[in-house]
Amino acid sequence: AGSTTLRAVGKLQVRLATKTEPKKLEKYLQKLSALPMTADILAETGIRKTVKRLRKHQHVGDFARDLAARWKKLVLVD
C-alpha cells in the first residue's frame, strides 16, 4: 500500500501545484485526506509543504490548514 499511496500523493502533488480552479483543488485535497498517510510519505514527498502553501487560499484555505495540522500531528507521533 505504501508505494501505491506514494504514487497517488505524487500525482496529486503535481496537480495541486499546477491547477488553480477551486473545485479541482478541493477535490485533490479531499483525495489526499482519504489516503493512508505516514510520516515517511510526508517526508519523502514534501506534500505537507505543498498543502501548506494553500492555507491562505480563499476557497480551500481552511481545508488545507486542517489537513496540514493533522499531518503535523502524525509526524510528531512517529
Score class of each variant (00 low, 15 high):
residue 58 Q to N: 11
residue 70 R to Y: 03
residue 39 A to N: 09
residue 23 K to S: 14
residue 42 L to H: 01
residue 70 R to L: 04
residue 39 A to G: 06
residue 52 K to R: 07
residue 12 L to N: 05
residue 71 W to I: 10
residue 33 S to A: 12
residue 55 R to C: 15
residue 31 K to S: 10
residue 73 K to S: 12
residue 32 L to V: 04
residue 74 L to A: 05
residue 25 L to W: 02
residue 20 T to Y: 04
residue 58 Q to C: 14
residue 32 L to R: 02
residue 7 R to Q: 14
residue 11 K to F: 08
residue 9 V to S: 03
residue 70 R to Q: 09
residue 2 G to D: 15
residue 47 I to C: 04
residue 46 G to L: 05
residue 66 D to H: 07
residue 25 L to P: 01
residue 36 P to W: 06
residue 69 A to S: 08
residue 10 G to P: 15
residue 14 V to D: 15
residue 44 E to P: 02
residue 59 H to S: 11
residue 43 A to M: 12
residue 58 Q to G: 09
residue 25 L to Q: 03
residue 74 L to Y: 04
residue 73 K to M: 07
residue 15 R to H: 15
residue 29 L to T: 00
residue 21 E to W: 00
residue 2 G to K: 09
residue 11 K to Y: 10
residue 13 Q to H: 06
residue 42 L to C: 05
residue 54 L to F: 11
residue 18 T to N: 13
residue 1 A to S: 11
residue 69 A to M: 10
residue 70 R to V: 04
residue 43 A to Q: 10
residue 5 T to P: 08
residue 63 F to T: 07
residue 55 R to N: 04
residue 74 L to E: 08
residue 56 K to W: 13
residue 58 Q to V: 14
residue 19 K to Q: 15
residue 36 P to Y: 11
residue 42 L to E: 03
residue 64 A to V: 02
residue 29 L to M: 06
residue 74 L to F: 07
residue 78 D to T: 07
residue 59 H to M: 11
residue 74 L to M: 09
residue 51 V to Q: 02
residue 22 P to M: 04
residue 61 G to I: 01
residue 48 R to S: 12
residue 1 A to W: 05
residue 11 K to V: 12
residue 45 T to G: 03
residue 56 K to C: 14
residue 77 V to D: 13
residue 30 Q to R: 06
residue 71 W to R: 02
residue 42 L to T: 07
residue 4 T to Q: 11
residue 51 V to T: 01
residue 67 L to F: 00
residue 72 K to H: 01
residue 15 R to D: 15
residue 58 Q to L: 14
residue 23 K to E: 15
residue 41 I to G: 02
residue 60 V to N: 02
residue 38 T to G: 00
residue 49 K to F: 13
residue 55 R to D: 09
residue 67 L to P: 03
residue 31 K to Y: 13
residue 44 E to Q: 09
residue 10 G to L: 15
residue 11 K to R: 13
residue 48 R to P: 02
residue 21 E to S: 10
residue 61 G to V: 01
residue 19 K to C: 15
residue 49 K to E: 15
residue 67 L to Q: 04
residue 5 T to S: 05
residue 34 A to D: 13
residue 1 A to I: 14
residue 43 A to G: 04
residue 14 V to Q: 13
residue 53 R to A: 15
residue 4 T to I: 11
residue 64 A to Q: 01
residue 51 V to C: 00
residue 70 R to I: 01
residue 64 A to H: 04
residue 19 K to R: 07
residue 19 K to M: 15
residue 71 W to N: 03
residue 52 K to S: 14
residue 72 K to I: 00
residue 23 K to W: 13
residue 39 A to I: 12
residue 46 G to E: 05
residue 38 T to Q: 04
residue 16 L to E: 06
residue 66 D to A: 05
residue 30 Q to F: 09
residue 16 L to M: 10
residue 44 E to L: 07
residue 70 R to N: 03
residue 59 H to T: 12
residue 57 H to I: 12
residue 58 Q to T: 11
residue 12 L to H: 00
residue 56 K to D: 15
residue 76 L to Q: 12
residue 29 L to H: 00
residue 65 R to T: 12
residue 2 G to M: 12
residue 50 T to V: 10
residue 28 Y to K: 00
residue 41 I to S: 01
residue 71 W to A: 01
residue 74 L to T: 05
residue 53 R to G: 14
residue 61 G to A: 05
residue 49 K to T: 14
residue 66 D to L: 05
residue 54 L to E: 01
residue 41 I to F: 00
residue 19 K to L: 15
residue 64 A to W: 03
residue 71 W to M: 09
residue 32 L to D: 03
residue 32 L to K: 05
residue 34 A to G: 08
residue 38 T to D: 09
residue 6 L to K: 06
residue 33 S to V: 04
residue 76 L to W: 09
residue 1 A to P: 12
residue 67 L to C: 03
residue 51 V to I: 08
residue 52 K to Q: 13
residue 4 T to L: 10
residue 23 K to P: 05
residue 50 T to L: 12
residue 39 A to D: 03
residue 27 K to I: 11
residue 29 L to I: 12
residue 69 A to I: 06
residue 75 V to L: 13
residue 58 Q to R: 11
residue 25 L to M: 09
residue 9 V to L: 07
residue 46 G to M: 04
residue 63 F to I: 13
residue 20 T to K: 04
residue 15 R to E: 15
residue 49 K to L: 13
residue 50 T to W: 12
residue 71 W to S: 02
residue 64 A to R: 00
residue 29 L to N: 01
residue 45 T to L: 02
residue 65 R to Y: 02
residue 37 M to T: 00
residue 12 L to V: 05
residue 49 K to P: 04
residue 35 L to D: 02
residue 21 E to I: 04
residue 33 S to E: 11
residue 2 G to V: 10
residue 75 V to T: 10
residue 40 D to R: 12
residue 76 L to T: 13
residue 25 L to D: 01
residue 35 L to P: 06
residue 63 F to K: 08
residue 4 T to Y: 07
residue 62 D to V: 04
residue 64 A to G: 02
residue 69 A to F: 06
residue 27 K to F: 12
residue 60 V to S: 02
residue 11 K to I: 14
residue 29 L to A: 00
residue 77 V to Q: 12
residue 74 L to G: 02
residue 15 R to T: 07
residue 48 R to F: 15
residue 75 V to P: 08
residue 22 P to S: 07
residue 45 T to Q: 03
residue 19 K to P: 14
residue 67 L to R: 02
residue 57 H to G: 01
residue 61 G to E: 03
residue 17 A to V: 10
residue 38 T to W: 03
residue 63 F to A: 04
residue 20 T to N: 10
residue 36 P to M: 05
residue 56 K to Y: 14
residue 30 Q to D: 06
residue 17 A to Y: 04
residue 68 A to V: 10
residue 72 K to P: 01
residue 11 K to N: 13
residue 33 S to M: 07
residue 30 Q to H: 09
residue 53 R to D: 15
residue 36 P to D: 11
residue 46 G to V: 01
residue 15 R to C: 15
residue 7 R to H: 13
residue 62 D to T: 06
residue 4 T to G: 11
residue 33 S to R: 06
residue 43 A to E: 13
residue 39 A to R: 08
residue 39 A to F: 08
residue 46 G to S: 06
residue 23 K to H: 13
residue 8 A to T: 11
residue 36 P to T: 09
residue 53 R to F: 07
residue 54 L to K: 02
residue 40 D to A: 14
residue 4 T to K: 07
residue 2 G to T: 12
residue 8 A to G: 03
residue 57 H to Q: 03
residue 27 K to W: 07
residue 10 G to C: 15
residue 60 V to E: 01
residue 61 G to H: 01
residue 2 G to H: 13
residue 1 A to D: 12
residue 12 L to C: 04
residue 62 D to Y: 02
residue 20 T to I: 07
residue 54 L to I: 02
residue 5 T to N: 06
residue 59 H to V: 13
residue 12 L to Q: 02
residue 61 G to C: 01
residue 16 L to A: 01
residue 30 Q to V: 04
residue 54 L to R: 03
residue 40 D to C: 15
residue 13 Q to M: 10
residue 49 K to D: 15
residue 39 A to M: 11
residue 66 D to S: 07
residue 57 H to Y: 02
residue 74 L to C: 05
residue 38 T to S: 08
residue 69 A to C: 06
residue 46 G to A: 06
residue 59 H to F: 11
residue 28 Y to P: 01
residue 14 V to S: 11
residue 54 L to T: 02
residue 74 L to V: 06
residue 33 S to H: 00
residue 66 D to E: 11
residue 68 A to F: 05
residue 41 I to Q: 05
residue 59 H to E: 11
residue 68 A to G: 03
residue 42 L to R: 01
